[in-house]
Design a protein around this nucleic acid. Structure first.
Length: 429
DNA sequence: TACAATGATTGTTT
DNA sequence: AAACAATCATTGTA
């Protein structure tokens, strides 16, 4: 590729350097035609080359100086530069364009997004927020983990920045060194400023490839950190007792249709201090595990049913005795709704024994009361054995293939009345 | 330490 | 898009 220029360098270099010391017949160009003479000249030149290392520094400097002062030197030098420019640049010109490396851009983007590069504080908190969102956890109880995560991240960040700085410094040092060297040599060797620039850009490219390795390993470290700290599956915490109770109360009081609407989920999430997604997960898990082994959950079901029944009974008796609006817990309308539907409620319960019961056609509040009262009946009637209770629950709640009846969810049918208020009244206490 | 319980994820189905 | 089913990984307990 650059064989030609290199040959030219060495040739001209030797020729020029040896110029002051050449035999006279070479210098005035008279001995060129003589074959024996030429051989002799070449022998002389070789001899000079061989002894070049024996020269003292002063001697070399003197030769250099003589060379620089030669009257033909500037013109000749320019010509050499020109020739070199043409050959070298035309060869290398093609590969000059450097398209932005997509991988490098990807790494840069990721480092920026993770808060490793970019502004210190904003980046860090943004990453932490993103992490919080990704993990889907409640902000309050894993803030400790997040601070731990942030600490580790800033550690990575610090290493990254010191390394990056080191690389940059080394790159600059090396660049200036090479530039000085080239500039120095350019006085005796045909090196144009353009070529120096080119050399610098080559150096920068080399160093940036080293930087890319640094970025890559930093990205890997961040990914490992993320998976370690933020993979919710690894870091899961059981919900606290209260949250579990709230969820279970809702589940067992809506046993025939345990599909909370979006509003209900939001309300539950709020009450349990968890996310809506977690509520959905919980209900998904609960439904499937309940269905898989109803017997196992019998005791739990009875317990929650009894508890909710007491609440329901209290509410009913209060209503019939004084017809008072409601407890402070439940909104006035919800309370009166329950009250006014108490008649329907018992009708529904009566019809429970028949096949005509259609959960979807009954208001959700009524439905929850029905679910509750099933348990009440099972308890007060002395049906404490699992088998009897199973007979109470499963035929209505779960269809032949094991799923819940394909009834519309409360939200689609009764959301105006069901919503947060009803959740509240169902699960309060 | 083994095992059950449990929250989350993933892939499939509806 | 939501639900289901299977599975993973952690937590709690005997």
């Amino acid at each position: 590729m650059d064989e030609q220029p290199r040959l030219m360098h060495s040739h001209t270099g030797v020729g020029m350097a040896g110029h002051p010391g050449l035999p006279q017949h070479m210098q005035d160009g008279t001995g060129g035609s003589d074959g024996d003479g030429r051989k002799q000249d070449i022998g002389d030149i070789l001899q000079q080359i061989m002894t070049i290392t024996d020269q003292s520094l002063d001697e070399a400097q003197a030769r250099k100086h003589a060379l620089n002062c030669h009257r033909m030197k500037p013109a000749l030098f320019n010509v050499l530069c020109e020739i070199k420019e043409k050959t070298v640049l035309s060869i290398r010109g093609a590969q000059e364009e450097e398209p932005p490396d997509p991988q490098l851009m990807r790494l840069d983007n990721m480092l920026l997004a993770e808060g490793v590069s970019g502004p210190e504080k904003g980046g860090g908190s943004a990453a932490a927020a993103a992490a919080a969102a990704a993990s889907g956890g409640a902000g309050a109880d894993n803030s400790a983990e997040h601070s731990d995560y942030r600490a580790k991240l800033s550690q990575i960040r610090q290493i990254y920045h010191t390394e990056l700085e080191k690389y940059e410094q080394a790159c600059n040092e090396f660049t200036t060194h090479v530039m000085n060297l080239l500039r120095e040599q350019s006085r005796t060797r045909p090196i144009s400023p353009k070529e120096i620039e080119r050399m610098v850009s080559i150096i920068h490219r080399k160093f940036s490839s080293i930087q890319m390795q640094l970025k890559q390993s930093t990205c890997e470290a961040v990914m490992i950190l993320r998976s370690r700290f933020l993979d919710a599956r690894r870091k899961r915490r059981n919900f606290n007792k209260q949250a579990t109770e709230i969820l279970n109360e809702y589940f067992y009081s809506h046993l025939s249709n345990p599909y909370p609407s979006e509003e209900a989920k939001e309300e539950l999430a709020k009450k349990c201090a968890i996310t809506v997604a977690q509520v959905s997960n919980w209900f998904g898990n609960k439904r499937i595990r309940y269905k898989k082994n109803i017997g196992k959950f019998q005791e739990e079901a009875n317990m929650y049913a009894a508890r909710t029944a007491v609440n329901a009974a209290n509410a009913s008796s209060h209503g019939s005795q004084a017809n008072s609006p409601s407890t402070p817990n439940s909104a006035g309308s919800a309370g009166s709704f329950n009250m006014s539907n108490s008649g329907d409620l018992f009708m529904s319960v009566q019809s429970l024994n028949g096949d005509s019961y259609q959960g979807a056609q009954v208001g959700a509040n009524v439905q929850s009361q029905v679910d509750t009262l099933r348990h009440v009946i099972s308890q007060t009637g002395g049906y404490s054995e699992g088998l009897t209770a199973n007979q109470m629950y499963s035929p209505q709640g779960i269809n032949a293939n094991g799923g819940w009846p394909d009834a519309p969810t409360p939200s689609s049918v009764t959301s105006p009345t069901e919503g947060p208020g009803s959740v509240h009244s169902d699960t309060s206490n």
